[in-house]
Write a protein that binds this DNA or RNA. Structure first.
Length: 511
RNA sequence: GAGAGCGUAGCUCAGUCGGUAGAGCAAAGGACUUUUAAUCCUUGGGUCGAGGGUUCGAGCCCCUCCGCUCUCACCA
């Protein structure tokens, strides 16, 4: 079938004494660097004088053939270049072959005229397939239509492809195939490559922002004995030699705080966390978080920092502050709005946050069951239902009910309020930050006190006695922040699914 | 977990009322020395997701299952 024809060509290439799997290829230029040499392509008149070519990228249509005729006798000259890449398109016009080659940085046309290069190389063009990797030596020039083109003087076979590429206009469309065969997606859907390159730029930008504030990047353990720092079901595993039950981490928090005790006063980790829960357009079982801790700061400084991280990340992608996310608009122009939890609660429900009876009534009315639950849990459920989805953002929601936040310092002026914010954009929680609780005695008692109406696995209050011991050695007062990197990338790359920003999202076994 | 939609050639997709399985791209053969999604001529290519049922006859109708997508639920 389709593979058989390619195998046949592979054998013919080998029979010509050419290695179809290529070799080291020195002095090769990226295609964008070759394109940058375009001004070096000039017209050399018979008297030896050089004339600049007309502006093909300008607004005016240029008839290059007519232009050359006007110049009289002479020839086009251009630099010698060496490129390598994948064959995207191929057009043969008898003794003239055109290829379009793509590498990481872009596309360029190659022209292969019979007689301009060794006959053996021209014969080789008959054995080329879409998708093959090829190296080309040639002179940079322009075709009659003015298109920048490498005139091949030598071909180098780099790699035969044994599978055909997807449809050449539409690319690979099937979302499952795009994720399962990301290698094909990246090659043939340029916007997919663009998204993942932007993901890298965003993460690099975050590191740059934090280094300006003297942060130290570390790597914590991913194998934990206690899944602390968040409320989520962990993946379970086992260490054979130690015969020890282990879980994959669900958060970065507790080890970073230990490092704060250890004197790394501004510390962060960008790392993978694992949660054994549902899969959705906003949830993948493994995803990337950044958590950072800043000694002698508080959650208000974290708000400023969050805003700076996001604004600089947007700039790193070369975009403005007005972004589209699907058909939703987001205005990232700083400063982002800041409102307290109770303000927003009252705004969207018409009820004061301490109106326990009224809130219970409302909870029942919208199908929630307040029976036997701590009033703050009911408030939280109503907030999620009535407020979160209505938040367009970006907006910092600040000052959460203290009982919901066992790792957070209480407000000095109101012990029922925790110094915490979350950043929301179109109902999606993007960042979460606290003034960190550093009182080991209070921390221990909060771990011990389970909130009523909440099963243990839903609570982040899991006893971690080594963590308590660390706090007893003294963690400085600090602000801490967590950002879901994948969700940030979604928002900044106009991706509606988390699977569009994770290179290899979890998929079922292929049947 | 619930609901809706989808699954047809390597890829992208049509397929009317239940009546011989279609197109474009890709592949194979041929023509062409300035093409641009090149063009032109010719040829090959199908377990219509799987299984069962209704029917003289099923890609199409019914049932079960599998997979994907979306919405909801779950999910700091």
């Amino acid at each position: 079938m389709h593979q058989a024809a390619r195998l046949e060509k592979l054998k013919k290439i080998e029979a010509m004494g050419i290695d179809p799997w290529g070799h080291r290829f020195d002095q090769r230029l990226f295609i964008d660097a070759v394109r940058a040499k375009a001004p070096e392509v000039q017209f050399k008149k018979q008297d030896g004088s050089l004339v600049e070519l007309p502006d093909f990228d300008g607004p005016a249509q240029v008839d290059y053939r007519a232009w050359k005729t006007q110049q009289g006798e002479g020839e086009e000259v251009g630099p010698l270049v060496r490129i390598a890449g994948r064959i995207l398109l191929m057009r043969t016009a008898g003794k003239l072959v055109f290829l379009n080659i793509r590498d990481l940085t872009g596309d360029i046309q190659v022209m292969i005229p019979k007689g301009y290069l060794p006959d053996e190389d021209f014969e080789l063009t008959k054995l080329l397939d879409f998708g093959d990797l090829i190296g080309v030596d040639g002179r940079l020039g322009r075709t009659n239509t003015g298109e920048l083109t490498v005139l091949a003087s030598k071909l180098h076979y780099m790699t035969k492809t044994l599978e055909p590429p997807p449809e050449k206009h539409a690319g690979l469309q099937d979302p499952e195939l795009r994720q399962r065969m990301r290698y094909v997606d990246l090659t043939y859907n340029p916007e997919s490559l663009h998204t993942f390159l932007n993901r890298t730029k965003i993460i690099q930008s975050i590191r740059k922002t934090l280094s300006k504030h003297a942060f130290v990047e570390v790597e914590g353990p991913t194998l934990h004995t206690i899944a602390g720092g968040a409320a989520a079901k962990p993946f379970q595993t086992h260490h054979n030699a130690l015969d020890m039950k282990l879980v994959l981490r669900i958060a970065l928090e507790l080890h970073l705080k230990r490092l704060m005790v250890g004197g790394i006063e501004r510390v962060y980790e960008i790392g993978r966390v694992y949660r054994n829960e549902g899969i959705s357009p906003k949830h993948n079982p493994e995803f990337t978080m950044i958590e950072l801790y800043w000694a002698y700061a508080d959650y208000k400084i974290m708000m400023d920092l969050t805003q700076q991280i996001i604004v600089e990340a947007i700039e790193a992608t070369g975009q403005g502050y007005q972004l589209m996310w699907g058909d939703l608009a987001i205005d990232f122009t700083p400063p982002f709005a800041r409102k307290t939890y109770s303000e927003l609660f009252q705004e969207h429900t018409g009820l004061k946050i301490d109106d326990t009876e009224g809130i219970a009534k409302l909870a029942k009315a919208i199908g929630l069951d307040p029976q036997g639950k701590h009033p703050d849990v009911v408030v939280s459920e109503v907030f999620e239902e009535k407020v979160e989805d209505a938040l367009v953002g970006p907006i910092f929601v600040t000052d959460y009910p203290a009982s919901l936040c066992p790792l957070t310092k209480r407000s000095a002026t109101n012990p029922n309020i925790a110094e915490r914010f979350e950043l929301f954009i179109h109902g999606m929680e993007l960042a979460n930050a606290y003034t960190e609780l550093n009182d080991p005695i209070l921390q221990e008692s909060l771990f011990k006190t389970q909130l009523e109406g909440m099963p243990e696995e839903d609570s982040m209050a899991k006893m971690d006695s080594d963590f308590i011991r660390a706090l007893r050695y003294g963690m400085p007062p600090a602000g801490g922040l967590g950002i879901g990197i994948d969700r940030l990338v979604m928002l900044l790359t106009n991706s509606r699914s988390i699977r569009d920003v994770i290179l290899f999202p979890l998929l079922r076994h292929e049947s």
